[in-house]
């Protein structure tokens, strides 16, 4: 099974006066994970609900493998959806929540039990959970139930709306791996919504960066990271210094982006631009240390591997040199900012 390709064509949607989507065109390739990434309120959930058939677009079409699905109601689309706030049925047990979609499809008896058990095994919930009420589960356990409920119907398309929001770091990492493992083994086309760029990079085959109802850029994580289309993408996806073009060393006007990790501390040749400055802030981030350096009353952020930082013996107030290659400076022709 190659997986169903989902294609949005010029999709518009408004709620009264609020325009949530302004002409989204996007292809989610079959069998892959496409991440919708964007800040709160940019229209991610709206696009997902249109994919699910829970909302009808005001204009535009939705195709599943080239077939127009725009007016196919949700209950006949065979999509599995994990909702932003999960929407588990509060009056049912874990087992019953997962069994619901199968019961609707007329699956009964041993067959039903077998399939529910399989999918609960897959998400890592053992027998002792089957009769628990979903309201008595931890956040991570609830997320697993929601995922199992969506997977059990063997959907053509899996829609995940911030499925790991509100989880602590460790649990999130673990579930992230599991989502990826399950998706790989089942090869379901997946659209994954998040506003967390690290999560997006960890899970996405394709990333679509959204803003104010538009898709600003689509590409693999690496493409988007290395070639952000505009300042907005550059600063939202990965962290970047937004600098005056001439300060950055270019011979033009305007603003440019320079990734934190592309700024080199005390460089030995091998760079095109060098400045002197004073260290004003040091934040330990584990493997990396984030420094803020004041250069002529401009503050620059840089990300230095911890070993390198220790080797250089930098402390607050140290005078340091910072530099970068011109090829690492991202300029933009025009584009929205």
């Amino acid at each position: 099974m190659a997986g169903v390709e989902v294609r949005f064509e010029d999709v518009w949607k408004s709620y009264g006066a609020v325009i949530a989507l302004r002409g989204v065109t996007l292809t989610a390739p079959g069998g892959r994970i496409t991440v919708l990434l964007g800040p709160s309120g940019c229209g991610k959930t709206t696009l997902l609900k249109i994919a699910a058939g829970l909302l009808e677009p005001d204009r535009g079409r939705v195709y599943f493998n080239g077939v127009d699905y725009t007016r196919v109601p949700a209950e006949r689309r065979d999509v599995g959806m994990v909702f932003q706030d999960l929407a588990l049925f509060p009056h049912m047990s874990v087992f019953e929540n997962v069994a619901f979609g199968l019961r609707v499809r007329g699956v009964r008896g041993l067959e039903l039990e077998r399939r529910v058990r399989e999918v609960l095994d897959l998400v890592g919930l053992d027998r002792s959970f089957y009769n628990r009420r979903v309201t008595e589960l931890s956040g991570g356990q609830q997320q697993r139930v929601a995922l199992a409920r969506a997977l059990v119907i063997e959907p053509k398309v899996l829609l995940l709306d911030e499925p790991l929001a509100h989880l602590d770091y460790k649990v999130k990492q673990k579930l992230l791996e599991e989502v990826r493992r399950i998706q790989r083994s089942l090869r379901i086309t997946t659209i994954y919504v998040t506003h967390d760029q690290l999560e997006a990079m960890a899970v996405g085959d394709v990333i679509a960066v959204m803003r104010d109802g538009y898709v600003v850029q689509v590409g693999t994580p690496r493409e988007v990271y290395e070639n952000p289309r505009d300042l907005y993408v550059a600063s939202f996806f990965g962290d970047a210094n937004i600098l005056d073009s001439r300060f950055a060393g270019l011979n033009s006007d305007g603003l440019v982006a320079l990734r934190f990790e592309d700024v080199i501390l005390n460089p030995n040749g091998d760079v095109d631009v060098v400045y002197e400055g004073v260290v004003e802030d040091i934040v330990f981030q584990g493997a990396f240390v984030s420094l803020e350096v004041n250069v002529n009353n401009r503050s620059l952020r840089l990300l230095v591997p911890r070993r390198e930082f220790v080797r250089q013996g930098v402390s607050l107030g140290s005078r340091v040199r910072v530099g970068w290659k011109l090829s690492d400076v991202r300029g933009f022709n025009s584009g929205r900012t």
């Binding site: 209950e75 006949r76 599995g80 909702f83 619901f100 609707v104 969506a150 119907i153």
Partner: peptide, 25 residues
């Protein structure tokens, strides 16, 4: 609303949603 939406994506029709979701709640 959200629970109904969830039931719909799982394939439930109006009657089913009323019987299994709305009425019990």
């Amino acid at each position: 609303e959200e629970l109904e939406d969830a039931a719909r994506t799982l394939g439930a029709g109006r009657l089913r949603i009323f019987k299994d979701i709305i009425l019990p709640l």
